Amino acid sequence: MGAVLPLLALRAFTETGRLGSLKAAAESLGVTPGAVSQQIRLLEERIGVALFVRGRHGVYLTEAGARVHPGLLRGFDQIEKSLSTLESLAVEKTLTISTVPSFASAWLVPRIGRFSELHPEIEVRVEASAKMVDFKRDRIDVALRHGLGSYPGLESIRLMAPVLLPVACPELLAQGPLIREPIDCLNYPLLQDGDRADWVLWLQAHGVQVGDEARRGMSFEEDLLLLRAAAAGQGIALVQDTHVQEDIDSGKLVVALDKPWPSRFAYYVVTRPDATQRPEVQAFIDWVVAEANSMATLPAL
């Protein structure tokens, strides 16, 4: 047959024999049915043997086709496994972490250097995105997500449960009325989360029954934007303590009233069940859990 194997034609033959349909084989290979048919015809012409017969409900292997199909099917399966192994070898020392932008900026990125110092052999990639992670499709090893911890088919470990704190820039509070009780926050513009729900819940948790006045003000989908607006003196923001510590330490923001309110959501480490078999993944999980456990609470004013 010569040194050059007709791999495209053999692949078209194998998929068509497996699925019993030119159309289904074409969809599996990402080509047109005409292209599959042409490759099979070229293969039959090359070897001088018919491989399929057409029937009312598809195509069927001839006796000759049926004799060689199982071996070719096993061969292509082995090729795919070998290719997957090569790809794994190429990225085995790379750890890709996905988390939401606000958590990445305020909590993970300032700390991740400590992990790299402990494990200089691991190349770390941080992807900041609010979209859901599809572990079957995306090349993500670990996701850090804010939720209730229910992730079907995945392993999740609880990291921390943030609390909500009202914060503002010092200049705004110095020029405005004194805040002694939660209801006093209504004397300032309120910077809202995307659902305009946090202020209402925080006030109600502290015994303040409010109406629409607690839902007014500019709204932002991300805590990062809330923090920037608060630092610019545009109002009081109600944000997670894990997101605001750096701005408090730098003096950009202060806690307007030291009455935190626990959130029912928490941050979780989320992975595939088999991911911890990789030492790089287990090393990161051990580190991030220890880092979360060692977190200091925000200082009271």
Rank of each mutant, 00 (worst) to 15 (best):
I140W: 00
Y151H: 10
L178K: 15
E155W: 11
F135L: 01
P110L: 05
A90R: 08
D141N: 06
S98P: 01
L148N: 14
R137D: 04
W107A: 06
K81N: 14
W107C: 05
I140S: 00
S116Q: 15
L172G: 09
D134Q: 07
I179C: 14
K93T: 06
K81G: 13
S82F: 12
P170R: 07
K81C: 13
L165V: 15
G176L: 08
F103I: 06
G113H: 04
F115E: 03
Q175L: 11
L89P: 01
P177R: 12
S105V: 12
C169P: 12
T94H: 04
E155G: 06
V91I: 11
L83H: 04
M132S: 10
G176C: 09
E127G: 01
P162S: 04
E155M: 07
L164I: 14
E80Y: 09
T85A: 12
A130G: 11
R139F: 05
S105P: 07
P152L: 07
E127Q: 12
Q175R: 12
E127I: 13
G113Q: 05
K81D: 15
S105W: 10
E87D: 12
V126W: 08
P120T: 00
L148M: 14
L118F: 02
Y151K: 03
S116M: 15
L89R: 05
K93V: 03
T99N: 01
L118P: 06
T99D: 02
V124N: 00
S84F: 04
V109I: 11
A161Y: 11
S105R: 14
S129N: 12
R111N: 09
R114I: 02
H146Q: 07
E87I: 04
L173Q: 06
L173H: 06
E155R: 10
E80Q: 03
P120N: 03
V163S: 15
E121N: 01
H146M: 10
A168P: 14
Q175S: 13
A106H: 08
E123T: 01
R137K: 13
P162L: 04
L86Y: 06
V109Y: 04
S129C: 10
V167Y: 03
E121Y: 00
P166V: 03
V109T: 10
E80N: 02
K136L: 10
E87G: 06
I122K: 00
G147M: 05
F103V: 06
A174V: 05
L154M: 08
L83A: 05
S84W: 07
P120I: 00
L178H: 14
P177D: 12
P101E: 04
A106M: 03
L159C: 05
L118W: 02
R137V: 06
I112D: 00
D134F: 06
S88W: 09
F135W: 01
T85I: 09
E92I: 08
T96D: 00
I122M: 00
A128W: 02
S105Q: 13
S82K: 12
G176A: 11
E92K: 12
H119I: 01
A174P: 01
P177K: 13
V100S: 13
R114V: 03
P166A: 02
E127D: 11
D141C: 04
P101H: 08
D134S: 08
S88Q: 11
L165T: 09
P166M: 02
W107L: 07
E80D: 10
D134G: 02
F103H: 07
T99E: 02
I97L: 06
L164E: 08
E123Q: 04
S116E: 14
P110Y: 05
I122G: 00
G147W: 02
F103A: 03
V167W: 01
E117R: 13
S129V: 11
L86Q: 07
